[in-house]
């Protein structure tokens, strides 16, 4: 067999995205019988029958070494499942510590009356809106965008802030198959308006509900 030059540490690849050339003929490694190591292994992998290699000592040797590797790999894999589901909860907790501290740039929406100087970031308001929609069984909330109404209210207090005045909520939901679409849209709208008033104190002129998908995997009915 050829020495393993060019296969190990010395091999110079570019970036991951960079194209590296397919194998040239030398690398496919011709065996003394005229076959290439590459194609012998390839056939073995795809399970294609190969009468030649069954009787050829060179091909047999090439396949034996590959099978030996496969055995070790499967032993290694078998040895692994002691921890089939590694516990990632500590890791998730650490990432969440960072996530909660980070400030996402985003819209700031008016809270309360026009003459108040109180605001809420869109992500926080959207959370209340989604949770309100999901109080209905068989409803999952997706995208939720909350915007000011153009031309309404006194000017914005700061750069990212929506002008003071009532807002429009655009909410996408996925609903169980059992819901009537008009009915569920109406009920979502009502719940969202109630929550905007009772939990936030945010004035809302309209709630646009889009049914983004139908969930048909489970029977669920209020």
């Amino acid at each position: 067999m050829a020495v393993n030059e060019g296969t190990g540490p010395g091999e110079g690849y570019g970036a991951v995205g960079g194209g590296d050339a397919a194998l040239d003929r030398a690398e496919r490694e011709p065996l003394p019988c005229g076959r290439e190591l590459w194609s012998v292994w390839e056939r073995h992998e795809t399970g294609e029958p190969d009468p030649h290699s069954d009787g050829c000592p060179h091909c047999t040797e090439a396949l034996t070494s590959l099978r030996r590797l496969e055995d070790v790999v499967s032993t290694a894999r078998d040895a692994e499942p002691a921890e089939a589901e590694p516990d990632a909860s500590a890791l998730v907790g650490r990432v969440m510590d960072v996530v909660r501290l980070e400030l996402r740039p985003g819209r700031t929406l008016p809270l309360g009356e026009d003459d108040e100087d109180a605001w809420i970031v869109e992500a926080a308001a959207a959370r209340v809106v989604r949770a309100a929609a999901e109080t209905l069984p068989g409803v999952r909330a997706g995208s939720c965008r909350i915007e000011g109404v153009p031309g309404q209210g006194p000017g914005a207090a700061s750069g990212q802030a929506v002008p003071r005045g009532p807002v429009v909520i655009r909410l996408a939901v996925e609903v169980a198959l059992t819901w009537g679409l008009q009915e569920v849209a109406d009920r979502v709208r009502r719940r969202v308006l109630e929550a905007a008033e009772s939990e936030l104190g945010m004035r809302v002129v309209a709630v646009d509900v889009t049914i983004a998908d139908i969930i048909d995997e489970r029977e669920e009915r209020p």
Partner: peptide
């Protein structure tokens, strides 16, 4: 996943197998 062509992946896997069979032998 890696952002290269399937042929390039085949080449790398082949080279890796060849190296490993020889190293372990």
């Amino acid at each position: 996943s890696v952002g290269i062509s399937p042929e390039a992946v085949r080449g790398r896997v082949f080279r890796a197998r060849r190296y490993l069979t020889e190293a372990m032998a």
